[in-house]
């Protein structure tokens, strides 16, 4: 009896394990892609207690990154001075206008929300210059991005 049992081949079922592992791999791959999309990781954001999450109704937003030297980047595009970004923002503004109904545009709808991710060590002048360009182009709805701070700390 015992001899015959020892001859049986005992194989663990590895298929469920493989399923779980592949799902985990997929999760990490997707997370890595989404996080890197338009955020510059070199920028250290300031802390703010009252910062709130971006409104879920906002579908169109544009992230402008300003590093410690005042250089602005939008995705892969680099703009050394705020003046150089004006043309880019103008194009975006025209695109917003083209895809919005004229009646809604007149009501102030259809414009992208500008999210400024500025390094905590840059000066206010550097941020203000970019905000002024946004204002000139027609973007008045600007959000300053910060790290949500714990009020107790």
């Amino acid at each position: 009896m015992s001899a015959s049992a020892s001859h049986d081949k005992c194989e663990p079922n590895l298929t469920p394990l493989l399923d779980v592992v592949l799902q985990l791999v997929m999760f990490f791959m997707l997370c890595a892609n989404f996080v890197m999309e338009s955020v510059n990781e070199d920028i250290v954001l300031p802390l703010a207690i009252e910062a709130r999450a971006l409104d879920k109704d906002v579908r169109d937003y544009m992230i402008l990154n300003i590093d410690a030297k005042g250089v602005t980047t939008v995705g892969p595009e680099v703009f050394e001075t705020p003046i150089k970004i004006q043309g880019f923002l103008k194009n975006q503004h025209d695109l917003d206008k083209a895809r919005t109904k004229p009646a809604e545009w007149e009501k102030g709808k259809g414009r992208s929300v500008v999210v400024l991710r500025a390094h905590k060590d840059c000066s206010y002048k550097q941020v203000d210059d970019v905000m002024n360009v946004c204002r000139k182009v027609g973007y008045n709805n600007i959000q300053l991005r910060a790290i949500k701070a714990n009020p107790r700390t």
């Binding site: 709130r52 959000q143 949500k148």
Partner: peptide
Amino acid sequence: SFQLLSFFILTFRPLPSEAQLALALPKE
């Protein structure tokens, strides 16, 4: 799969929770 998983776990850096302070700029 385990090798891939260990690679992604080691290189995964979750970003801190970012939030916004809304501003109302005067019109130009």
